[in-house]
Design a protein around this nucleic acid. Structure first.
Lengths: 223, 223
DNA sequence: TTCAAATATTACAAAATTGTAATGAAAAAG
DNA sequence: CTTTTTCATTACAATTTTGTAATATTTGAA
């Protein structure tokens, strides 16, 4: 936990920095340049990346876009050049923060924590082993993606945002099939429930997530 | 759109600041102190709050916690005192960023945009007259619903959560077409862009939302 | 200007989604 | 136990989505 990747080619600075961060309760992995930085990043799981802008062997900006292209992990630029253009560029390649030297240690920690906290508050809807990442519009089960059609997705989101709450058939039909004044038969819902169960339940015949409440409706439960 | 609340008791500073921000495309509401600041905040809808730490009539910190207790709107402290303890305190009461004077205008804008973008984890993603309600998985244009297919939806969410940021073709392809190890041709993206434009743009031939950045990729822009 | 590269547009077939209806199974009521 | 109701399951046709290829257009560079 609180694993941080520091990419910094100034060895003495890196040493003192990681020493300090460790004393603050972080665990720090250190990479000297672009190549091992990316390699490390792809191998381990980090909660935050501290990135020196001016590396010898590559451009800090490109490392940042590289990282951001494959994950949401917060990236904070650390840099001597407090140059405004660089700062702006840093944010444009997706950085979460940009800190000029000299670093003030407690502020640095505060900014790292801030970035991690913001990142942690992702809008994830979870129910048992099924997760909807509404910030991407994706559903996963045990970390592998499940492809849901547009309406299946909406239906599941409806259930997950009302976890534990009973939804009447009427309410569900209203919520999903009232975008065009079309009439949709009642049995449609039965079929959608079945299709969802087939996709998300471990044993669709014994649903543990989408429960039937006979005569009343359905609800999603956790455990 | 891009409505900002500035709480600042130094009138001349407030004037020049809001002038500049307006020239950058923000619309700025100005409050002189705590009382009208809170009042304005509760009345209107803002995408970001700029908060002077040292107000006469109240403590900037308490305004911040007040705001954060009732919403997720990003709060950025603007302050003369670059004092480290204050900075740390600012983050502790939930601020999203903390900028010391003197402000560098483009950096300020970059940080504001960054805060707003990060806040995109909120349920409503908006770009011009198109809104995605991620808490329901629906897209609306001028308040009437637009039916997007699963992949179109994901693509648009990707753009809207990165509003103003350039997305390379590679990054987009990675994000959308890497769920099954299938290869998907490069031209697919062109077609999806067209389909989205046909659905969301007022004049699909002159896209105002999904902009092409030739040779680099695409980005969603607001106005 | 001319050319080459990048993007836009169109058309199309394979595949998936969508809604319905018919049938089957389970639960509650009599 | 039988009946009725409710939900589950299946199968199916109409429609939509999806990815591709082929063509047109635009853009920037030579």
């Amino acid at each position: 936990m609180r694993n941080i990747l520091l990419i910094e080619d100034d060895i003495s600075l890196a040493k003192s920095l990681s020493g300090f961060l460790q004393s603050e309760g972080f665990s720090v992995a250190h990479a000297l340049g672009m190549t091992d930085g990316i390699e490390l990043f792809e191998k381990e799981n980090f909660e935050c990346v501290l990135l020196d802008l001016s590396l010898d062997d590559g451009n800090g900006f490109s490392i940042c876009s590289r990282i951001k292209s494959q994950s949401d992990t917060p990236v904070i630029f650390l840099t001597a050049s407090a140059d405004e253009t660089c700062t702006v560029m840093g944010f444009e390649v997706g950085a979460d923060d940009y800190i000029g030297k000299p670093f003030r240690p407690r502020e640095l920690v505060a900014r790292i924590k801030n970035a991690i906290r913001k990142h942690a508050s992702q809008p994830l809807l979870q129910c048992s082993n099924v997760i909807i990442d509404t910030s991407r519009g994706v559903c996963r089960k045990n970390n592998s993606e499940i492809f849901l059609s547009a309406l299946e997705y909406r239906l599941l989101v409806l259930f997950f945002t009302n976890k534990g709450i009973l939804l009447s058939r009427e309410k569900i039909m209203d919520e999903l099939w009232t975008f065009s004044g079309e009439f949709v038969g009642d049995s449609t819902l039965n079929v959608y429930i079945k299709r969802l169960r087939d996709k998300i339940e471990d044993d669709p015949a014994n649903p543990q997530i989408l429960k039937t409440v006979r005569g009343l409706g359905y609800k999603a439960v956790d455990e």
